[in-house]
């Protein structure tokens, strides 16, 4: 009952974007993928969600993803893309309902509104999606994704949130809100796999972190194990100093302390 990616290889033309990367994400945990720009973070998520052609093996709750039908997959995992362009003037609530059409909460009409309330957009339900700011659109899409897998555990099986940079265009309050939502989903028994840009949010909210650099996995473990001076400096190609907050020992990285 976990999400396992093994030996994932992806090539864009001649360039190898991923060279045999694997990771295991467990239900009940937030697993983060971090790494510098172009390290293959989003490509790895793209392979795991079968959005692009890859070699290797991905299994979800013990079943090989390639052998599952789109609707079977949609019932146990939802995917938040980095950016969404909507082709037609749907309202926010209509967009969230589209996520529900294929999910198993289809017979629960109250779910979309609850999902919007969860991301703090209940009052925007009847605006058109195109009117939203970048950050609001990202949260509205998160609501759609949440509605699709509203119950973190169903029929004894964990369900999965796969998030591609879920906080990239959000202010700090909403960054924390979205990360809380992800953590709550995991605490309730679901699994979360998120591509993250912000190392400090990763340290705060992730249970396990995969560090990618140049298409390979540099490290995989708890934030305390992985977010070290050595690993990060190697991954990002600049000297980084990791500190720790006094009581809990959560690692944090100050750009002030970095030197090229």
């Amino acid at each position: 009952m976990s999400l396992i990616a093994e030996n994932i290889r992806v090539s864009y033309g001649k360039r190898e974007a991923l060279r045999g990367v694997g990771l295991t994400a467990l239900p009940g945990e937030v697993t983060a993928i971090v790494g510098p720009n172009g390290s293959g973070k989003s490509t790895l998520l793209g392979a795991i969600t079968a959005s692009l052609a890859y070699q290797g093996r991905v299994s979800l709750n013990g079943r090989c993803v390639e052998r599952m039908k789109p609707w079977e997959l949609a019932a146990i995992r939802a995917v938040l893309p980095q950016a969404s362009r909507l082709a037609f003037p749907f309202t926010v609530i209509e967009v969230v309902r589209i996520g529900l059409q294929s999910g198993t909460a289809g017979d629960r009409p109250e779910v979309p509104m609850q999902a919007l309330a969860r991301v703090g957009l209940a009052h925007y339900a009847h605006r058109t999606f195109q009117e939203l700011s970048g950050g609001e659109a990202q949260r509205a899409m998160l609501a759609r994704v949440l509605a699709q897998v509203w119950a973190p555990v169903e029929d004894g099986q964990p369900r999965w949130l796969l998030l591609d940079e879920p906080v990239s265009s959000l202010d700090i309050a909403h960054q924390l809100q979205v990360m809380e939502i992800a953590r709550d989903f995991a605490r309730a028994g679901g699994g979360v796999l998120a591509v993250m840009h912000d190392l400090n949010l990763t340290a705060l909210y992730a249970d396990r972190v995969a560090v990618l650099a140049d298409g390979e996995r540099l490290a995989f473990g708890t934030p305390a194990e992985v977010l070290t001076d050595e690993t990060l400096s190697r991954a990002y190609g600049c000297a980084l100093r990791v500190s720790a907050t006094p009581p809990s020992g959560v690692p944090f990285i100050l750009p002030h302390a970095a030197s090229a």
């Binding site: 969600t49 079968a50 959005s51 039908k69 789109p70 609707w71 079977e72 997959l73 949609a74 019932a75 995992r77 939802a78 995917v79 893309p81 969404s84 362009r85 909507l86 082709a87 037609f88 749907f90 967009v95 589209i98 996520g99 059409q101 294929s102 999910g103 759609r144 699709q148």
Partner: peptide, 21 residues
């Protein structure tokens, strides 16, 4: 109808919500 609504969100997202695009 249902499939085209999903497709409005993009081909990748349509597949993710369970449509055989």
């Amino acid at each position: 109808g249902r499939g085209l609504n999903g497709l409005a969100l993009g081909e990748a997202t349509a597949a993710h919500i369970g449509i055989d695009v």
